[in-house]
Amino acid sequence: MRNSIPFLLAFVLLFFSGIPSMAQSSGAEMADVMRSNGKIYVVVAVMSTILTGLILYLVSLDRRIRRMERNAD
């Protein structure tokens, strides 16, 4: 379980990185990457988050299995 703490931290950081763009909800339309091109970058961010989560899960499984292999030998 100790191993999963860096992953959790990475996820928390990922969520906080979205807050600045939420803060400027009113006022003029600013030059904001996440709001351009019909907000397609939001889709890219969501899909990248899912992919990142899946890959991190696979990496953690890989490490857990490797540890079991080391114990078995």
């Binding site: 889709v43 890219v44 899909m47 990248s48 992919l51 890959i55």
Partner: peptide, 13 residues
Amino acid sequence: VALLAYAVIGGIL
């Protein structure tokens, strides 16, 4: 991982 990141980001943009 690199190819999938490219497929998601490049694939949409």
